[in-house]
């Protein structure tokens, strides 16, 4: 696999690049710019960069004002801290349906040692519930760069892009282009479909290798576009395989697992085994230890795959 780059490093570089060609792009941060990497933009374009201090409500409402005055506003902080402005996002951004992009970092449990206060696993659910908001969870640096290009070139409405802190292996080809509302099949398979996103895509690909040793042919499908969701892409793989696992670095409630289950229960009911955080806060530890601790590691995806595959076959045998 290629040497990995953290998604926020990609974001920081990308902002500088788009700042050169898009004069209407402005960037706001809340005293975390050296961590979110928006500081890179601030160094090159100090007149279009606003460090609002540790005042997220001020940051989000100012971004709304900038967007109402014709700017495209990128807003960044840690995912967990943006959530305290849920209502500003709802009223001032989503209800106005304006060009504010929330690109947040340090989402999920891979913040590691910082512990539960910083490990948000509810954000995808919170943001997905907002009318006019679209939600994207990129899997690697190639996808992150492509998503940012897409937002700048093609969109003028609110988006939530969820990035994490750690470096993740590159899973997409250089030629990859993000398409809103479209899954990416990274590995085809006929026995089982693993729908995953973010950090769990790399894990899922490794889990698929393990499952192969157990004679289970697993497809790995990257569902980076949580909203809008590629319903047909989910249904077609459920039909093809009849066995489904979801894997996300997020709560299984109101995240990818819930979305996939909603679609399948309406359109093509098959048992779904969800891998992700349960109804719990995170804890301090090395991020890779935490995946095992919360039963979200490679071996847990493998067990979920076996469970899904065997359980469904069991029902078929009985009937």
């Amino acid at each position: 696999m290629r040497p990995a780059e953290s998604l926020r490093e990609t974001y920081g570089k990308k902002l500088v690049e788009i700042g050169q060609r898009k004069k209407d792009v402005v960037v706001l941060d809340a005293d975390l710019s050296s961590s979110t990497k928006t500081s890179e933009f601030g160094k090159v374009f100090p007149d279009r960069f606003f460090n609002m201090g540790i005042s997220e409500q001020s940051m989000v409402t100012a971004a709304a004002g900038l967007a109402l005055a014709g700017k495209q506003a990128f807003v960044s902080t840690f995912a967990v801290f943006l959530m305290r402005t849920y209502e500003q996002i709802r009223q001032s951004v989503c209800y106005n349906n304006i060009d504010v992009k929330f690109v947040v970092t340090h989402a999920g449990i891979t913040v590691g040692e910082d512990g539960a206060t910083h490990q948000i696993v509810e954000d995808v659910g919170i943001m997905s519930g907002l009318p006019n908001m679209k939600v994207i969870v990129p899997a690697d640096s190639i996808e992150t760069a492509s998503v940012i290009d897409y937002l700048v070139e093609k969109t003028k409405t609110p988006y939530y892009v969820r990035l994490t802190r750690e470096k993740f292996p590159v899973v997409n080809d250089d030629s990859y282009k993000f398409k809103e509302g479209q899954n990416t099949v990274l590995r085809d398979g006929s026995d089982l479909a693993i729908f995953c996103n973010g950090s769990m895509v790399g894990f899922s690909l490794q889990a698929a290798e393990e499952l192969k040793k157990q004679a289970i042919d697993a497809a790995v499908v990257n569902v980076s576009s949580i909203k809008p969701l590629d319903r047909n892409g989910i249904i077609s793989y459920a039909k093809k395989t009849g066995h489904v696992v979801t894997a996300e670095e997020h709560s299984i409630y109101n995240g990818l697992g819930s979305r996939v289950s909603e679609v399948l229960s309406e359109e093509y009911p098959v048992p779904v085994v969800r891998v992700g955080m349960r109804d719990t806060f995170g804890k301090s530890g090395k991020s890779w230890e935490l995946f095992d601790y919360f039963h979200m590691g490679i071996k847990d995806i493998v067990s979920a795959g076996i469970k899904s595959f065997r359980e469904v076959n069991k029902y078929e045998t009985i009937s």
């Binding site: 402005v26 001020s58 409402t61 004002g65 001032s92 106005n96």
Partner: peptide, 24 residues
Amino acid sequence: ETSTGSLGQGLGIGVGMALAAKID
């Protein structure tokens, strides 16, 4: 110029608009 109703948000929006005026 903007929808309002949940209190406390308009001054921030005003700050953003005023910043945009300065940039432009």
